[in-house]
Design a protein around this nucleic acid. Structure first.
Lengths: 219, 219
DNA sequence: ATATTAAGCGTAAAAAAGACGCTTAATTAC
DNA sequence: GTAATTAAGCGTCTTTTTTACGCTTAATAT
């Protein structure tokens, strides 16, 4: 039996979530839009395979990803009997290698403009979005989609995209500060306002400490 | 590459969560305690394989289960290159076929008395418990562990087992009633008190209706 | 100097969660 | 037959969290 891994690669650009897809390289559906995926080689971990294909396409070496689940219907791929381990990956959209992406024919689509994908990949995207919504609420993974330094309005915009609903800026601000995992920097971002917004950084050390003393992250 | 599926089979008995395991049937670790698992045949869905092995061991035809995830380390099984799709299954412990279970050498262990398991199965159990804790809070899956007719104190006891902490009976009662998915029956269970406790049934129809009108289940 | 606007601060009301005292319906003990 | 016992169930007050929204501030643009 073949085993593949497919990555639902999310990016956040210009206040919108985007998905990276590329033309399928093998099989009867060659050329159709597909998630970023590859077969798992006999001697490599499934996770290694995901890292390998993510690096091959984006040039990034340590992409953040988590497993979504296995898709194992016997008839999911008309070509071979193949199960796929789906992974969702979160990328800082400013950091990937644009030439490499272009070379592979990969493209970032806004989430609501993604064309039909091959096999069961549409389903995977839908499932990944639900999973992202749940996970991002309870774990600090959203930061993987933002630059290392970000503003509160940026963070809010991200969460509005993930949850697909507007949030009150004043309440959002209070909420995220109450988590105690944002470290304020001495810099402002002035790209979106005259006044400028303070930049923050996710304080992972403190997050880990808090975790150990039994606290509950929730945005 | 081989593909297997392993089921973390939970039951709730006597106020405690239990795990069903059996002696491994193949490979170098034959005879050691293992989760309920099997290879996935070439022509069957992964889910079908899970149902098949669950039925083979418990005699139940429609066991509730959800996927936990794929375990895909290259060296996880010293015998073969084999990835495993882990599933957690919830069983009404009064309903399984005791003869069949015995025949296969399977046994229900209290969660804190489970012996060491083969391969990465200990890890799977640990992960499944965390997943159960999360899922049972936000989705009405706990009912799969109780008889169709149950009392509020039974439900509370179940959630105390899942969360591993005590709950206030008066607040718990208020909470579950506010969900609006319990249908009161005209019967009492008198097995644990003189006064008797009213029996309830999970009202799935109403749950589905509420879901569609955007409500949020949380216990 | 004045207008403009995203960023940021504060407060009051509503809802949810937590703590806990008391009553009730049945059985068991005398 | 009466009293004691106890899990089940009801009600209330307090604290915390969430929601709604008015107002100020720091900078640029006019």
């Amino acid at each position: 039996m073949y085993v593949a891994t497919d990555c639902i690669v999310f990016g956040f650009d210009n206040g919108e979530l985007k998905l990276l897809i590329f033309p399928r390289r093998i099989g009867p559906n060659q050329g159709e839009w597909s998630l970023i995926g590859s077969f798992v080689e006999l001697q490599e971990d499934v996770d290694q395979a995901a890292l390998r294909i993510l690096q091959e396409i984006t040039g990034l070496e340590d992409v953040f990803f988590k497993q979504l689940g296995a898709y194992g219907k016997a008839d999911r791929d008309p070509g071979y009997r193949c199960i796929s381990i789906a992974q969702y990956a979160l990328i800082r959209i400013g950091e990937y290698d644009k030439e490499l992406v272009e070379k592979h024919g990969a493209y970032w689509y806004k989430l609501d403009e993604v064309p039909p994908l091959v096999l069961d990949h549409d389903q995977m995207v839908q499932d990944a979005l639900l999973e992202l919504r749940n996970k991002a609420r309870h774990q600090p993974i959203g930061f993987e989609l933002l630059p290392e330094k970000f503003t509160i309005p940026q963070l809010q915009s991200l969460y509005e995209s993930i949850y697909q609903r507007e949030l009150d800026s004043r309440n959002f601000r209070r909420k995220v500060f109450s988590l105690g995992v944002l470290r304020k920097l001495n810099e402002k971002d002035k790209s979106t306002s005259k006044k400028g917004a303070w930049l923050y950084r996710f304080d992972n050390d403190n997050y880990q400490t808090l975790l150990r003393s039994g606290y509950n992250f929730e945005i």
